[in-house]
């Protein structure tokens, strides 16, 4: 299971920059960042080293942060690779809230990050289906809560 930071951001100029600067100044390296936005606010989802420590740093700077458990799956480099995963989840009755993709620099392998309602049963379903789950330590430096 992979732990992702979710940060609530008001739609205010410079807010995302401030958040990145706080993380940068405290030497937290980000591996993936995606921002979901509405007209009034956004939620930044971040895969970074030592997510729990990063959460504390952001909170002490006044950000609303939560740590969310997500699933990381190595995507086969063939057409229809993602469709296979989604069909597997669908047939297991797992509802996907959102997903995003990033490419690991080492080896040019794509990793898809899934946020699902029930990560444990999703993990089981994917493992039974023969998909490769990516462990936290493979993509960032995990830490304890």
């Amino acid at each position: 299971m992979v732990e992702q930071l979710s940060v609530f951001l008001e739609n205010e100029s410079g807010r995302l920059a401030t958040m990145c600067r706080v993380l940068g100044d405290a030497h937290f390296n980000m591996h993936a960042l995606v921002v979901a936005d509405t007209s009034e606010y956004g939620v930044a989802r971040i895969i970074c080293d030592r997510p729990h420590a990063a959460r504390r740093v952001l909170e002490s700077s006044g950000f609303a942060v939560s740590v969310t458990r997500v699933i990381a799956v190595g995507v086969p480099d063939t057409p229809g690779g993602l469709a296979d995963i989604l069909e597997r989840l669908d047939s297991a009755g797992v509802n996907v809230e959102y997903l995003y993709c990033y490419v690991r620099p080492e080896g040019a392998i794509a990793v898809d990050i899934f946020r699902v309602e029930d990560p444990d049963s999703a993990t089981d379903a994917l493992q039974l289906g023969g998909f490769t789950l990516v462990r936290a330590a493979e993509i960032y430096e995990p830490d304890a809560a």
Binding site: S6, R45, A64, S66, T68, Y98
Partner: peptide, 10 residues
């Protein structure tokens, strides 16, 4: 608040 999901915020 579970603000990870836009749906929950809305």
């Amino acid at each position: 608040i579970r603000f990870d999901e836009i749906r929950a915020l809305e």
